[in-house]
Amino acid sequence: MTLAHYMTVSGLLFAIGVFGALTRRNIIGILMGIELMFNAANLNLAAFNRFLAPAGVVGSAVTLFTMAVAAAEIVVGLALVMAIYRNMNTVYAEDINLLKG
């Protein structure tokens, strides 16, 4: 396997994530698309670490940091979804228009 294969898979995963985050109406669906994008970036970091710098582990360390930030992001995002659902009784992005003029 070459590095190009892994990069293609991660690019496909990123494109699918972008498509999901842009087209989903449900906030939870948007968050799932963002998770897919995070995973594509992680996969790219790990692949570059394996192919270009096999002696070091800095790529893996940065991937771990990305995972921690992604976990924090999804926790806060889902807490916001629950707060919005309790106050406005909807999880659809187009119904949340409090600031619309």
């Binding site: 396997m1 070459t2 590095l3 190009a4 990069m7 293609t8 991660s10 690019g11 990123f14 494109a15 394996r50 192919f51 270009l52 096999p54």
Partner: peptide, 14 residues
């Protein structure tokens, strides 16, 4: 764009 960049990285794993 990602596949375009990937064309330059056709290297085998160590």
């Amino acid at each position: 764009s990602v596949t375009k960049v990937a064309q330059g990285f056709r290297i085998e794993a160590p």
